[in-house]
């Protein structure tokens, strides 16, 4: 079955500040919304969750992280009763013992295998995002992640950039990251590895944009 998710002409205002105006999107792959604090990311998610103003034939779930702490993720997720595939994912995803409560909240929704999963900023690292995206890809889940951390962009195939209460830039990740000057004007810097490889291109040491230390090593010493 082919699933679709569409949001059309979405408007969002708070105290006369326009956060989204006639915003439309179609989801065909995982994507990340990057925006500074106060750009309306959480409000956007809460509004579309409560108003259900989207058109879809798939299951849509939302995750909002809480600031409570949690120590034992295995107990929380009933680890022993999970399938070997899910256990393997959990071991990789929980490798770093930080943000455990957010990870558990997310994993509980993930294991319901929705078609679309919207996740507010959980402050995951790039490695955690990559692990998550790989699981989503294998299980045909489209992840839509909202964050202010530009470092996680390289993990996603598609990016929306928010600024001044608007989507100011969107596109395939590689194309967005090639717009170094535009990103700077918008107040963002490139993520670390794309930035390092861009600068090394000016020295003539690297020929393309790279997203990881392994790729960078290969480019420099191939």
């Amino acid at each position: 079955m082919k699933y679709h998710f569409r949001l059309e002409n979405f408007d969002l205002k708070i105290n006369e500040r326009v956060l989204f105006e006639h915003f439309s999107m179609k989801l065909s792959c995982s994507c990340v919304f990057v925006g500074e604090s106060g750009s309306g990311k959480t409000l956007f998610l809460k509004t579309i969750e409560t108003q259900k103003c989207y058109d879809t034939n798939g299951t849509v779930l939302f995750v909002f992280p809480k600031l409570t702490s949690l120590k034992n993720w295995k107990e929380e997720l009933d680890f022993g009763n999970l399938s070997p595939q899910l256990q393997e994912f959990c071991i990789a995803f929980f490798q770093n013992h930080q943000r455990i409560k957010s990870k558990c909240d997310l994993v509980k929704k993930l294991f319901q295998f929705p078609q679309y999963l919207f996740c507010d900023d959980c402050h995951f690292s790039l490695d955690e995002i990559l692990c998550l995206l790989s699981f989503c890809k294998e299980n045909h889940i489209i992840l839509c992640y909202f964050t202010n951390d530009i470092e996680v962009i390289p993990g996603f195939p598609y990016v929306f950039l928010l600024k001044y209460g608007k989507v100011v830039m969107e596109g395939e990740t590689l194309l967005v990251l090639k717009e170094e000057k535009v990103l700077k004007k918008l107040g963002y810097h490139l993520p670390f590895y794309p930035n390092m490889s861009t600068q090394l291109q000016y020295y003539g040491l690297v020929k393309k944009l790279v997203f990881s230390k392994e790729e960078l090593e290969e480019e420099l010493w191939k």
Binding site: E36, S37, N148, D149, I150, G187, Y188
Partner: peptide
């Protein structure tokens, strides 16, 4: 004493 003041700020800020 600024407690995690820079957390969640974008580069420009």
């Amino acid at each position: 004493v600024l407690e995690h003041f820079f957390e969640e700020l974008i580069f420009e800020e």
